[in-house]
Amino acid sequence: MNFGYYPGCALHGSSDDYEQSIRACLGALGIKLEEIDDWICCGATAAHSLNHKLAIALPARNLALAQRQGCAEMLAPCPMCSGQLLRAGQALASDAALRSEISSIVEAEVNDGPRVLNIIQVFERVGLKALSDAVTKPLKDLKPACYYGCLLVRPPAVVGFDDAEQPQSMEAVVAALGAKPVDWNYKTECCGAGMTMASPETVLELSGKILANAAAHGANCLVAACPMCHVNLDMKQAAIQEYSGARYDLPVYYLTDVVGMALGLSASELGADRHFVLAREA
């Protein structure tokens, strides 16, 4: 199985533990990733807040580069990136005038861009039965709170994935690994997202509620699929504990970490030893 691959800036920056995890995990499943040559930033929150045209043009350039590379399906593991790519693709598909304007802005023809996939959809493509058959170390002791955050499932008209209020796709993946996902209330609440720098208290408060709810429902870890969520819940966990006075010590895994561990990969192969909150030795 081959997919085009749009890493996005976070996965080539301080969240490169996520890329390490993705490459190790998908490699073990025999999936090849073809990185989009000379990809550029999707513009993220800054572009959609400040300049609507740029928020379409930056992702559009990447869709055109992917198309030029002959890529039919492209994994964009960061939900911010995948959301912006999907949004731009839809705007261009429904408006011929915009398509020709944007094509000249980005100096590349965008016709039929690739289908953009999130990481859960890649596991669905592998098939949960096939995934379960590949497990060599069932995660019997893992009780994860599967955390979707905002952009994997919202806005539903753009992402068209799972259920915006009560998603279950990540639970299905971790259950196929032998883990026992907990029922909890905060799986689609926001962690504070890109406010980490500009408004740190927002992150401490929102991410604090997520950790508290996961702990209250008996989770012994969180599983996330977004680099920003991971930064807020893992790197900021010590600051959150100081702010709220509560103690959680909950490891936060990327979804590819837990799949990789069930396939027999070690924490250091997956980069999970580079997280801030580490699992206690069993």
Binding site: H12, D17, N51, K53, A57, I105, E107, R274
Partner: peptide
């Protein structure tokens, strides 16, 4: 944790990025 990268990545075709910003009015 090997997460601090003092030199960030740059794309090869930075000129086209500049032109995209110009044309988008940014």
């Amino acid at each position: 944790r090997r997460k601090l990268h003092l030199t960030g990545e740059k794309v090869r075709d930075r000129a086209v990025v500049e032109r995209i910003f110009e044309r988008a009015g940014a």
